[in-house]
Design a protein around this nucleic acid. Structure first.
Ligand SMILES: [Zn+2]
Ligand SMILES: [Zn+2]
Ligand SMILES: [Zn+2]
Ligand SMILES: [Zn+2]
Lengths: 166, 166
DNA sequence: AGAACAATGTAATATCATAACATTACTCAA
DNA sequence: TTGAGTAATGTTATGATATTACATTGTTCT
């Protein structure tokens, strides 16, 4: 799904998603090996579930998928894994949806901009320095010290938009 | 609190906040008169409560304040008023905080950028065309049609940041 | 006055998230 | 290798935010 840094295409239905998952899991493993944190079975499982699509997914959705046979997992199970993955920047939280999505520049410390289709749910992650620079400039004028940015753009992806024109 | 369009200062402790409230309430009244929608007692009350500070405030906080004597209001009471105020752009929702804040360009259709201090809770609303342009450009490259932008920057306001330096 | 509609009241429930404490798994020094 | 210390997970309960459904009241317009 990635092209060069800071430029992402919107996920297409035909892309080979197995590659996305594979890359993500390998990057996560590398990161955890490098930094000495533990990518346990549970955390790995949750990360895979988050990466099962390019749609932000809710914690309780993940929770359901964690219990294939009657066994029921409780919320802290998934929230703790999500917290770990967030802490290590392997996933992002989408505040406007109370949902989580895999990060495609893991390890690399960043805040990103998200474009999220209201119809199909797919999301694209971008890092646009122009957006960042504009926000930093505004912050400077306000005397404000930025810690975290939340930029989430809702709308229609190209495909869904085409599909709606009569 | 307003200076010229698109440029806001961060709210200072000494500004005359009564003026902010007054302006907001008059703008709301004007808007409702112009467009023929009803600013009922309840809606007015909720709007005043939202404007009681420059901090985003939660729905349940508002709810408590709505019931000064033992009378207890139920959630739909406040959520319906909030929905009305959102629909008519008299307030904004801050997704990253599940909270609401008065809009200082009401009537004027817009998405804004918010800078929110994690220490004191105060927030500044900006409309920076550079941010918008950068996002629109990104959207175009993605073939994405923007409907709504959520831009919420968390950090420290000048005063709180000063207060922390040793 | 009364029909039609808008707003509000009320009770129940859905959805998202965390606190507190018990248990299990892992690590590493002795 | 064992066991003490720590990290991770399990379990139960609860907190925080938000909506659904239906009853009642208020407003508008004839
Ligand atoms: Zn993919
Ligand atoms: Zn779409
Ligand atoms: Zn003020
Ligand atoms: Zn502050």
């Amino acid at each position: 799904m990635n092209s060069k840094k800071g430029i992402q295409r919107f996920p297409t239905p035909r892309h080979n998603h197995a590659t996305c998952v594979n890359t993500a899991m390998h990057q996560a493993e590398d990161y955890c090996n490098r930094t000495g944190v533990r990518l346990t079975q549970l955390r790995r499982r949750v990360l895979e579930l988050v990466w099962s699509s390019h749609r932000p997914v809710g914690a309780y959705d993940l929770l359901e998928q964690l219990e294939p046979k009657g066994r029921k997992a409780a919320p802290p199970t998934v929230y703790r894994s999500l917290d770990f993955l967030l802490e290590h920047k392997l996933i992002h939280r989408i505040d406007s949806l109370n949902a989580f999505i895999g990060c495609n520049q893991p390890g690399h410390e960043h805040d990103a901009q998200f474009f999220i289709c209201k119809a199909c749910g797919e999301a694209a992650e971008l890092i646009d320095p122009k957006v960042e620079r504009a926000l930093v400039k505004d912050a400077n004028q306000l005397g404000f010290n930025i810690e975290k940015q939340t930029v989430e753009i809702a709308g229609l992806c190209n495909r869904c938009h085409q599909g709606r024109k009569k």
